[in-house]
Amino acid sequence: MTLSLVLQAVFAGVTNGIVYALVGMGLSAIFKGSRVINAMQGEFAVIGAMTTVLLLTKSGWPYPAAIAGGALAGALVGAFIEIAFVRYMAGKKASEDSFLLLTIGLALTLSASVLFFIGRDGHLLPPIGGEGVLIVLDAVIQFHALWLIAIGIGATLLLRAFFHRTTLGLSMMAASIDPDGAATTGINVARMRTFTFVLGGLLGALGGILVTPLIAVDYTLGLNLTLKGFAAAVLGGLTNPLGAAVGGVTLGLVESLAIIGISSSYKDVVAFTVLIVIMILMPQGILGRAGRRGG
C-alpha cells in the first residue's frame, strides 16, 4: 500500500463522500422539516441530472442555464410531492410508515418512468473545468471532482447559515420542532413544509447534476444514491445537515480505505460493518445532538 494509493483512495473517498453528503443533506433537511424519510431522495438526483441533460442536448440551452433548469426541476418536483401527497396525508394524521411507503412508491414510479420515457441509456454531462486532471504523487483527481467538493462544502455551509441565520430557515426549524407553537407566532406551517421539500429537491438535484459528469446518470442510479444518502444522513444524526456532510464523507472514506486496506472484494462488508459499529458507539450520530435519538 503505497502513499500514492492512499492518496488516491482519499481523493476518491472524499469525492464520493460529498456526493453522498449532498443526497444525505437533502434527506436530512426534509426529515428536519417534516419528519418524513424521503426514500426517493436519490430520484431527485436523477430528475435534476436528466432534466439538465435534456435541456442541454435536446433543447440546446447553454450549460449554466441547463443546470439551473435541472435544479429548478428538482425543487418543483419536491414542491409538487408535498402539496399533492404529503399535505393531504399529514392532514389525516398518517403514520411515519405510511410516509415511508409513499416515498418508496414514488421512487419506484420515478425510476420506472425514467426507463419508460427516456430509455435505458446512461447520459453524461460536460465536466466543470474541462476534462483535465490534477496529479499529485501519481494519484489522479479530475478538476470536476475538485469543483464538486468545493461546491459541496459551500452548499453545506450555506445550508447551516440558512437554518440558523435566515428568518425562513429559522421558521422552517420552528415549524418542525413545534408546529403549534410556530403557528401561534404567525408561521405558516404548511408552507414551511413545502419549502422543506423544495430545499430537499434542490439539494438532491444539485447532487445529481454534479455527479453526472463523473458517472453517467441512468434509471438505476436513484436507489443506490438514496441508500448511501440515507446512511450519510443517519450517521450525521438525521436532523443535522452538517452532520450528513460529515457522515457522507466518513462513509466515502471508509469505503475507499477498505478497498486498499483490506480488499475490494469485501468493501461493502467492511464499510457497512464500520457503519454499524459507529452507530452503536455513537448513538447520537457523529455530530451528536442532545436529545436526538434518531426518530
Partner: peptide, 20 residues
C-alpha cells in the same frame, strides 16, 4: 484482480490498484 459491486457509482480506487 479488483472487484466492485453491481451498480457501483465509483471504481476509481480499484482502478488505481490495478494501475499500481
Amino acid at each position: 484482480v479488483e472487484k466492485f459491486e453491481i451498480g457501483a457509482t465509483d471504481t476509481t480506487t480499484q482502478a488505481a490498484k490495478v494501475k499500481a
